[in-house]
Each structure stands twice: as C-alpha cells, then as structure tokens.
Design a binder for these strands. Sequence first.
DNA 1: GTCTATACGACGATAGAC
DNA 2: GTCTATCGTCGTATAGAC
Lengths: 195, 195
Amino acid sequence: MPPRIVSDRDLLERLTDVFRSAGFDGTSLAHLAEATGLQKSSLYHRFPGGKAQMAREVAERLGDEVVKNALAPLESDGPLQRRIEKVGRVLTAFYEAGAKSCLLDTMSLGVAGSGAEDALATAASHWIDAFARVAAASGAKPAVARARAQDAIAAIEGALVLSRVTGDRRPFARAIDRLPAVLLGTETNTRTKER
Amino acid sequence: MPPRIVSDRDLLERLTDVFRSAGFDGTSLAHLAEATGLQKSSLYHRFPGGKAQMAREVAERLGDEVVKNALAPLESDGPLQRRIEKVGRVLTAFYEAGAKSCLLDTMSLGVAGSGAEDALATAASHWIDAFARVAAASGAKPAVARARAQDAIAAIEGALVLSRVTGDRRPFARAIDRLPAVLLGTETNTRTKER
DNA sequence: GTCTATACGACGATAGAC
DNA sequence: GTCTATCGTCGTATAGAC
C-alpha cells in the first residue's frame, strides 16, 4: 500500500499543464497518466468523475489559487502603477512571455457538461474583479473600471492567441507594457510605440 | 453516379463551421459528415488526406477568401475612418457580435503535423498586413503600423475568448468600436467609455 | 461520386489483485 | 493507493458495391 506518490497539489499542477497546452479535447487520460506518473486507474481513484472532474478541479484551482496568488501584488501597498507593473512581471513569467497559452482559452472548448465551464467563468470573473478594483482605486467609476479590466485581459488573451499562431511574442510584451496605462486610464499614443 | 451533392465551395464552408466551433481535436469525421450531408467515405474521396487535409484546406480558404473578402473595404476609396468602420461591421457580422469563435484560435491547437499550422499563420499574416496598410496610410511608420495592426487583432481575439468564457459580448463591441482609433493612432481615453 | 460495411487502434472508464 | 488487465465505444481510415 504505497502512499501517495505525488501530493494533491502537485497532481493538480501537472494536470493543469496538460490541459493548458492541449486543451480539453486534446487531453487524453494517457497524457494525464504520463504527466503525473500515475496509471489511469489511479487517477480514477482520486478523481472518480474521470476526465470531467479533473478538468473541473483544474479550473477551480485556477480561480482559487492561481488568480489569487498572481494578482496578490494588486492588494499590496505602494503606488498603483508599481503594483500593476509587478503583476505584469508575474504574468510574463506565468505565460512565459507568450509561449504558453491560457487555460481560459484552451479549456473553454469541448468542456460542455463537465462542470468546468462554471469554474472557468468564475476564474475569469475573479481576474476581472481584481483588475477592476485597481482601476476603481485610480478614480474610475465602477462600469468604467470593469470595462478597463476586461479590455486589459482581452489584450493579453488575444496576444497569446496571436503568439500561438504566428510565433511573434511582441504583441504579448506590448500588452503587458500597456497594462498600467490601460487600467489607470492614462492611455496615450504610447500604445503604438515600437518594440 | 450522382453528381456532387454540394459544391466544393459549400463543402468547405460547412467544414469550416464545424472546425470553428469545435476546434480541431473536438471535430470528428462523424460531425463533419453530418454537417455536410455526406458519408465519411465520401469525404475521403474529396479529401484523401482525411481530417488533416480538411483542416488544411479550411485554413487555406480562411486566408485566401475570407480574409480578402472581409477586408476588401480597406482597399476601397473614401476616408480611412469610414473604411475601417465598414470592416468593423463586417467583423461584427462574421463573429456574430462575439457569439462565434475565431478559427485562428480554435484551430490552432492539436493541428501539429497536419500542415494547417502554416495556413493559419499565413491567414493571420494577411490580416495583419491588411490592417497595417491602413495604419501606414494614416502616416505611421511601418513598424508602428504593424504593431497597431497586431494590437487591434489581439483586442478582437481576446474579446472573443472572454465572450466564450463569460458570455459577456460587450468587450467585443468595444474592440470593434475602438478599431478606427487603434489603427489610425487617434486613441484617447474614449477607450474606456462605458457600454 | 456516393454509398454500406468494416478494420483496427485509441479513447474513457471499470474490475479486481496486491 | 497503486497496479495490471480488460471492457465497450468511438475515433480515423479503408474496401468494395453501385
């Protein structure tokens, strides 16, 4: 009776990597087994609901843990600009400068009926809310703050799509560079600066 | 010996719809057969390379036909602002105001080795080039024009991802509204106007 | 050119030994 | 809790009649 070979936390992280890079439909139990070092039946022991449950828990962890940790700098003290720049660095590391995709994108196809859809929507909401709080702290009215938050996230998500298709990671770098200006409403034509 | 039940053009359009909404991995030959009204073996008669060839031709049509037609208003005469607004209306119809996904996004996972990757990259390049020509016509230097084009497309792609995850289509509407300002470099804080 | 029928591997999922 | 072995289904792809 060997004890758990990998911790629950490690397990979910490894599952996350697979879903993130292959998407829901592109992820097979064989892939998940290989990535975790467990056999398929062992995965079923921990996730009786099978692939759908794994996807759901991966999505829930995205909302509960990743988003909170990644966005924690927003709740710290210091100038708003500096907090946002810090989040930009965290996001650049998380997405490997545009080389990795976002779970919100890749896992949002083919998951109908798995229960993961709600978890993905919740994770997106947490992200939007966190960005909107910063925008509101700069004086924007709630609706404006929310719009800025959504636009900032859309710029990042779109840059990740472009990066995956074209291999060009500069759009991602620009989206991160523009993050403070977009959220704080200090946008000017620097948006088109070269890089 | 019944003649072709559907024309080559219709056939590719129907295949496109399936790949667009289900992604490459989520698309099965059974789905494609149902969407076209043909049996699987009939699809193989027209596409001996199977699913991979279908995906490749769908991606090639995206670059050759869809992009050219959709972006045709950019090459017309009249004020740049008006041309871009026209393209915004075409894109809004094409994406059904954010309800439909983009092939560049959904087909860019799981296609490794199908030859569709190059076709997708080419389609993206055509789109970027068309937007960049308009930006350049407004006086922007080549590198700046290209950056504006990429950023405009990223805003749209990201909004489509957000729309799929959250169901909120307002980010897409804003991305289209901002399209002229982004491409022409007349961006101001109207980017955060409510809607 | 389209069809019915089928091969055969990969898939998600389960049974039962240890 | 993990494993080996296996189930039934659906996946892509093919053969051959009409």
